[in-house]
Design a protein around this nucleic acid. Structure first.
Lengths: 209, 209
DNA sequence: CCGCATCCTCATGGATACTG
DNA sequence: CAGTATCCATGAGGATGCGG
């Protein structure tokens, strides 16, 4: 638990809960989906096992997440509380703010396609939310997804057979930088084709509204 | 400078720049107004002098803030760059998220009236931004201010002679908690009168649109 | 004074090994 | 699988010094 700032300020008190190293990244993983301990270790490359255990305890105590026992046997699962889920807004703000840092490209950093599920909605132009019929196609690895944008938010589901209006193919490690710089739904423009040099590929397609 | 997370994720890269202890609180102070070293020390109760110096250097290197020489002589002043100013959005999100932490009240924490200049706009209901004529009166210490809300944002200026529609008097140390729980401009309701037990008082008044 | 730099101590983070 | 225990490196915090 972070040492108190001793300031009666909303920002300071928030940071006493989620300002510790790794905390917001754990919340990021749980915003994508509830997860088990092992999933979190994989989704947070570089974290030490004791750090993850400590942080999960802190965040549970603070009321940001909760431990749940899934149906089969005694499997432990971690999920955000309603209050913890509301961190989506500031986290999306930080993802948008990172644009100048992301367009440098991935360099030696790790990349996980699941992070797109959080980043792409955050990076889409806000005009999307006023166009109820907007739909974006996402293919992560071999699994095709469809990202539906409506006034009530974004929803990821199975992809139907809609024709593509524009298509982009990019290495997973570059897709975020490309999206940050160029992706807006208002004009649905193609981002261009980038060479794929890894064995894992992501196809990001923008459909017409 | 924070150790790298080694993740090609916008949130992780943002946190490598502003995730270190004190960094976002320094940005908070500069969002209120550009400030000198001494002002920052006073506005950040609890910070050590070497921490402030280190962080200012880090944030300048990262491009979040810049050192400026003010007109008279060689007085150093710190101000946010345009990119740094864009942290207002995620910071306001964290201020809103802190509501359950703030309604506990100030306890033993320090309070500075200037923090209201950031918190009040962040806590106002978003309906405010769709009512161009909305105006809020703020009195910090002896200085009366007027907070004008328009579609282009909030602006703080001198107070004119407008009649009050509702008035709230509260100790500065409680005003944030009250505002977080009860203040919406849509119905402009009074928050009630709270005893003032300090020598410094804040009057928060909600005007009719 | 203001704007830092140095020094020292202690809490925290990180890597690895290990256990129920 | 889901964490603890251990050890070491790093960073925070406080006091103080010091040049302009």
């Amino acid at each position: 638990m972070m040492r108190s700032y001793g300031q009666y300020c909303g920002l300071a008190r928030s940071l006493e809960v989620v300002g510790d190293r790794w905390n917001l990244l754990i919340v990021r993983q749980l915003l994508i989906a509830p997860a088990r301990y092992r999933d979190l270790l994989e989704g947070l490359p570089g974290i030490a096992t004791n750090m993850l255990a400590d942080r999960l305890r802190d965040l549970e105590t603070a009321g940001v997440l909760e431990r749940r026992l899934t149906g089969e046997g005694c499997a432990v699962e971690y999920a955000l509380t309603p209050w913890g889920s509301e961190l989506r807004q500031p986290i999306e703000g930080l993802i948008r703010w990172s644009t100048p840092l992301m367009i440098r490209g991935p360099e030696a950093d790790a990349f996980r396609p699941e992070w797109l599920a959080l980043a792409v909605p955050a990076l889409l132009d806000t005009r999307v939310t006023t166009r109820p019929s907007a739909t974006i196609g996402l293919e992560i690895g071999d699994a095709p997804f469809q990202l539906r944008a409506s006034s009530s938010g974004f929803e990821i589901g199975a992809q139907d057979g809609s024709a593509l209006d524009a298509t982009v193919r990019a290495d997973p490690a570059y897709i975020l930088g490309l999206a940050a710089g160029a992706l807006t739904l208002g004009d649905a423009r193609a981002l261009g084709v980038v060479e794929v040099d890894g064995d894992e590929s992501v196809v990001l397609a923008v459909f017409a509204a």
